[in-house]
């Protein structure tokens, strides 16, 4: 057996300690999961107003995270905000009738995208969302100032339009 010096042993221990610390940081602190299913598909949603939604905000169905917001930008032709969402492939059976709304966790919490699954009926022409699809039914963020303005002046929203359903959100 080769004789190892105390120095070498403690340096090895030092390195191991560093690696263990790094692994703890990755798994316990950053919540990185080892069995990460890399398969995601992107869907797009056109909103009237995304509020203070951030990139990397969660996309949830009933509170369960199914994906993340990967990009927020403005459509060049329509000049409306577009949110690109990456949804894990295991949740591939989302109907195209699903609704995506910008919601807020708590009163001052962070904003996220809540998806309300829609019905699936082949006769009505609904399909499952695929990579690159667009969610037609969207709900904008509730902007507190607008809400107060509406309340104060009792201005009726024009309603009607497909995507302006923010005021009916609970």
């Amino acid at each position: 057996m080769v004789k190892y010096s105390k120095t070498e042993f403690s340096v090895g221990l030092f390195m191991l300690l560093g690696i263990i610390a790094g692994v703890i940081l990755a798994l316990k602190v950053a919540g990185l999961t080892l069995s990460y299913d890399s398969g995601v598909y992107s869907v797009y949603g056109y909103f009237d107003n995304v509020g203070s939604l951030k990139v990397r905000a969660p996309v949830k169905i009933g509170g369960v995270v199914i994906g993340r917001v990967s990009a927020i930008y403005v459509d060049h032709e329509k000049l409306v905000p577009v949110v690109k969402m990456e949804i894990e492939s295991q949740y591939s059976e989302l109907s195209s009738e699903s609704k995506a709304s910008v919601l807020t966790a708590g009163l001052i919490g962070e904003q996220y995208i809540g998806i309300t699954p829609g019905f699936y009926d082949e006769d009505m022409g609904s399909t499952y969302l695929k990579d690159g699809d667009r969610i037609m039914d969207t709900g904008s963020a509730i902007v507190l100032e607008e809400l107060i303005g509406k309340f104060l002046y009792s201005v009726k929203g024009d309603g009607g339009s497909d995507s302006d359903t923010a005021s009916s959100e609970k």
Binding site: A26, K28, V29, A30, G31, R56, P58
Partner: peptide
Amino acid sequence: FWSGMQSNVDFWDDL
């Protein structure tokens, strides 16, 4: 304590 940490610390951006 831990879940609030995990949802807000990003592996690449922060670590």
